[in-house]
Structures are given as C-alpha cells and as structure tokens.
Design a protein around this nucleic acid. Structure first.
Length: 562
RNA sequence: CGGGGUGUAGCGCAGUUAGGAUAGCGCACCUGCUUUGGGAGCAGGGGGUCGGUGGUUCAAAUCCACUCACCCCGACCA
C-alpha cells in the first residue's frame, strides 16, 4: 500500500482528553477515531492490527478444538429474564424496543444466547464436550468509559463457551483455555500475570484473570514476591500488619484532645495500631458496633456486601447510644452487638473510647471486654498488608485485565433448562464455562508496554505492516525508480507500506517512528550517492547499510530474528 | 450517581477576573516561489452558530439561569 493512498491521519498534537500512553498514541498514530464517549471507529491502520490479533486468536482457539460461530448482538429480553440478568445487569445493559414494542437488549455477553442454542440441540452425553467461540462486538453502557479502548461501551471480544458433563470435564475445558490464552498473549508479546478474580455478574465458582501490569490499568492486583500468591485486590484476603502489644488492666485515662485517632495516639504516645476504632452503625433500625484497628479504615463496600442496608449512625445517634461524642465512644459496657474486623483479632491492650467526652480506656482486651458476635474482614487493605499464604508483604500493581475465564457450572443451564441425558439415562444440567478476551485491550496493552518517546513499537506478529519503505526524496527520479523496484520485490513476501508522499525527510521519519512498523527501509540521496540503502530496526534503532541487491535478503534475516 | 475540570476554526491554546471597535495566536489546510536526512522558510489565502437555549444590557465569548457534551477522580463492574 502506498502511503499517499491509505488514510492514516497522524498528528503532532494530541487532543487534550487523552491521558494514558496508549490513548495518546492511538490517536496520534491514526489508529482510532472517537465517535461518542466510549465508542470508536477503527481506522485502516488500527483495524489491521485488530485483525491480526483476531487471526492469532482464531489460530489458538482452533488448536484446542473450538468451533467458531457468530451470535447476534440484538437479543430478546425474554432470555435475560430467564437467567435473572435482565435485572442484575441494571443500567449497564443497552436496552431498546422494536417497532412492536418488544423489549430487546444489545448483548453485553452471550451466556444466555449460547444456552438457548444448547437447550434446543444438546440432548445426549454423546454430543459433549463442546467449545464454541466467536469474535464479536459487545455492548455495555459503562458508567465511566476511560482510556479510549481500555474501557469502551462497544468493544470486540473473543468469547467462548464450554459445555461438559461434569466438573472434571469443565476442568479440562478450563485448562485448555488457560493454555490457549497463554499462547495468544505470548504471540502478541505480552506477559500477563494470572490472578484470582471475582466472578461478579457472571456467577459460578471460580475465575481467573490475565492481567498486564501497566500504570494505565484500572485494576489493582497484589502479588507476593515470596510464594507467588497473586490476586485481584477486590477478592484478595490479605492479613493485617502484625502487632504485638502487652495486655493490661482496663484503665480510664483523661484525653483532653480532639477524639481523632491521630490526636489520641499522639497524646498518649502510642502508635495508631494500638487504638481500637469504634464505629456505630444502624442495621434494620438497631445499633451495632463495628470495631477496627486504628490504623485501618472500614471498607464501606465490603460492609455493605456483608450486611445489606447497613448505614453509619449520625452524631446524634452516637450520643444517644453511647452518652458521649464521636471519638470518645466504644462498645465497652454498653451491652450491644459488636462486629469486629479481623485486624482486632490479634490485638491486646488497645486504647478505646470510655463513653465519656475526653476520656479513653487503655488496656482493652477485646475478648475480655467486648461481646463480639463475630470477626469479619471489613478493612480497606493498605500497603504493607501480608500475603495470606506466607505472611510476606505483597506488592501492589495497576493492571489491565486482558482476559477472564470463568467456571460457570450450572447457573445458566439450570435457570434456562439446558439438560442432557448421561450414559446411565439420568437427566443432568450441562456444566458450562465462559471465557473472554478483549481484542482492543490487547492492542492498547501492547502499546502501553512497547513504545518510546517517538511512538509505538509493534511486535512483528501484530504490526499493521511488516515493512515501511521510505522514499526520502520523492522528486529524485533515481530514488523513485529504486523504491518502485523494492516495493514490488519486497511485496512478494512482505506486507509493505510505501511512504511515497512528497514530504520532507524529518516529517517522514517522525511519522515512521510514530506508527511503529518493525522494519524501516530508507532510501535517500545521502545513501544513494554511495549506492547504499538503510534498513532500520524500529525497536533497537540499529541501522544496516546495504546495496539494493541485498535488501531483500537482509530484510528476511532481520525479520526472522524479530 | 457523587466530586473536580473543560467547551472559542480540524488539533493545541489566548481572550472571560473588570461587558465595548472587524474574536486572536501556533499547527494543519489551499496557492505561488525557495528548500529537501529528524515535524522547513517567505508571501498570499480560506475556514468561527465563541457547546446550546433563555435572560440582563445601548452593547455579551465575557454577567445570570437552565441545559448538553467531553475528560479526570471516586463508586460500580469484565
């Protein structure tokens, strides 16, 4: 393809909305064009990259015996009502009505559609197992799209679904996908970490995410440098930092300062971790105490998940229940239910409110002095928290979620009636798995981990073109003739983009580095005087000078080593 | 949905505090000449509902009200 003919709107300046590296470079390199928030056109160069990623996906899915099909994006509400996700998906599902006023949805994922096909056709264990996949556009009305294609409202997903007789079969299909995914990512030169994850709306027992470490990632993952434990922060079960305090007798002391953890710990000259924070909540109109170590905060989301409809008490309610102001209160002596965060479990000799303004207790032993109903993990994790396997402090990283694989089990087959008859003549629900990879996220992640100050550096496997032939001087007839020859010759074996534009050299060099094609072949008057042509490796910057006859051979050699 | 920010030419911005003449600048675009190895120079030119609606005023990009869009943080989520 000649650059003078292909549409690649590169730019020097970036629209100000772009924040992440990949967002900026995708706009600057002319890969994508925004339509509305979270919706993008893939321009010719970007689409070539996405098609190459899809080709790799097809190759690897086919390798594990999966079959490609294509399901509709437009779906009737009835199937979502059967599974319960018409409600569960909430505002994130794009909904519409057809001319007959029937409710429809643009599918955000395809478990329901797959299950309708399965229940119509799979009757016998003889038809199992199956793995079906598609590469298709998904629609999700995200609360907050961000980072261009990193979190979009329409995006391309490779999603596959496995059908098995039992858990053993599911485990096998799951392992096949793990293998296929590792191959796909490694073909794209990505090295994702695999972490435990939340199944969320998908349901099921077990799920695993493939995450690429990147500053632009919106997920937090924690990773243990000692034993390899790794998890998405949202499902991690980290241990609090250890404390070791002496026990003591309950003693009331005057604390004539502000009641904050900070002020009290400074006044009494003890670390914040020696304080026991007591927070009054209201659950079903009844007061309940939550106690947590002073150096931690309550994670409101964990709390709400654990106790539906709970809310923090007002200052007036605290005064009424405890007889003192916030900051000087605790459950001690109040005979009310107490829920303790795990951080309290190992503690002794705590400082806590005495239910009188400007007084605290020291030497609090929670087991002795409180009526604790139970210990629950309610704290917001913080850096320094320990690995649950080996008690080493974990590392925190931002990451981009590239793929997520789920053991769904029988959630959908039971809800929607997808049963088969096993070899004993018994009717059983089909055991399902669901597996997704974001196609655009691979493109963005590659840019995040493979770029320099001049632009993108594509790995050979997904580069939009393999070779960029640059004619530095479009008005030099000798150079033009040579370039035309090279263009034809190299085109026999490579995907060549030929920069034949009548632009200045600097302009072309900058464009070349920006769009990041792995091999640049530079034809310019400086080299031609000595009969030499330059071959530049975009990644290493290494330049080889060769005579024109040798170009193809040298390029083949370099390409083989990319 | 909560908090913050931004809307002026295709892109980046100034002008808005303190209302006032034809709304500016850089890049990009068009024409011509000169240039030609890391985003050229000179000369000329085109391009604007100042996000929208309503109001205040002799006069609104500028003040007021409402509204829309986009971005960032949070919440939520694959």
């Amino acid at each position: 393809m000649r650059w003078s003919r292909i549409f690649i709107p590169t730019r020097k300046e970036v629209p100000k909305e772009a924040e992440s590296v990949s967002h900026k470079l995708m706009l600057r390199a002319g890969l994508i064009e925004p339509q509305v928030s979270g919706v993008y056109t893939y321009l010719p160069l970007g689409w070539r990259v996405l098609k190459k990623i899809q080709k790799i996906m097809r190759r690897e899915m086919d390798r594990i015996g999966a079959q490609e099909l294509l399901m509709p994006a437009l779906t009737p509400s009835s199937i979502w009502k059967e599974s319960g996700r018409w409600e569960d998906y909430g505002d994130e599902m794009f909904r519409l009505k057809d001319r007959k006023e029937s409710e429809m949805a643009l599918a955000p994922t395809h478990e329901e559609v797959i299950t309708t096909i399965v229940r119509n056709h799979i009757r016998s264990h003889r038809s199992l197992p199956q793995i079906w996949y598609q590469i298709q556009t998904k629609y999700r009305d995200e609360m907050r799209p961000r980072g261009a294609v990193l979190r979009a409202r329409t995006f391309i997903m490779k999603d596959s679904y496995s059908l098995d007789q039992d858990e053993t079969g599911l485990q096998k299909s799951f392992s096949l996908h793990e293998e296929a995914y590792r191959r796909i990512f490694s073909s794209c030169r990505l090295k994702p970490v695999e972490v435990r994850a939340s199944s969320g709306l998908m349901g099921g027992s077990n799920s695993k995410e493939f995450m690429v470490i990147s500053e632009s990632g919106e997920d937090r993952i924690v990773n243990c440098p000692n034993c390899g434990y790794s998890s998405n922060l949202e499902v991690a079960n980290l241990l609090p930092t250890p404390v070791n305090f002496e026990n003591g007798k309950l003693k009331k002391v005057g604390t004539p300062v502000e009641g904050s953890v900070d002020a009290i710990s400074r006044f009494l000259n003890v670390p914040p971790s020696k304080l026991m924070k007591s927070l009054l909540y209201i659950k079903k109109d009844k007061p309940v105490w939550i106690v947590i170590r002073g150096d931690y905060e309550v994670d409101e989301e964990k709390l709400k998940k654990e106790f539906k409809g709970i809310r923090i008490a007002t200052q007036e309610e605290v005064k009424e229940v405890a007889g003192a102001s916030v900051g000087y209160v605790s459950p001690i002596g109040l005979n009310l239910p107490v829920i303790a965060d795990l951080s309290i479990k190992q503690g002794l000799g705590f400082v806590s409110g005495a239910n009188e303004d400007y007084y605290h207790y020291t030497g609090v032993d929670p087991n002795r002095d409180l009526d604790m109903k139970k210990f629950v993990d309610l704290r917001k994790f913080k850096k320094g928290d320990l690995c649950p396997e080996c008690r080493t402090p974990v590392e925190w990283k931002n990451a981009i979620e590239l793929g997520h694989i789920f053991k769904l089990g029988t959630k959908y087959s039971k809800a929607m009636g997808a049963y088969f008859i096993d070899e004993n003549g018994e009717k059983k629900p089909i055991v399902m798995g669901s597996y997704g990879i974001g196609v655009e996220r691979i493109m963005a992640s590659v840019i995040e981990v493979s770029h320099d100050k001049n632009g993108i550096i594509w790995p050979a496997s997904i580069a939009p073109y393999q070779i960029l032939l640059i004619n530095l001087n479009a008005s030099d007839s000798k150079g033009v003739a040579l370039c035309e020859d090279l263009y034809r010759l190299l085109g026999e074996e490579f995907e060549v983009l030929y920069d034949d534009r009548d632009e200045r050299a600097g302009y072309k060099f900058n464009d070349a580095d920006l769009i990041g094609i792995p091999i640049q072949i530079i034809v310019g008057s400086k080299g031609l005087k000595k009969g030499m042509i330059e071959i530049k490796n975009r990644k290493t910057g290494e330049i080889k000078k060769v005579v024109s006859k040798e170009v193809k051979e040298v390029v083949k050699k370099i390409w083989g080593n990319l």
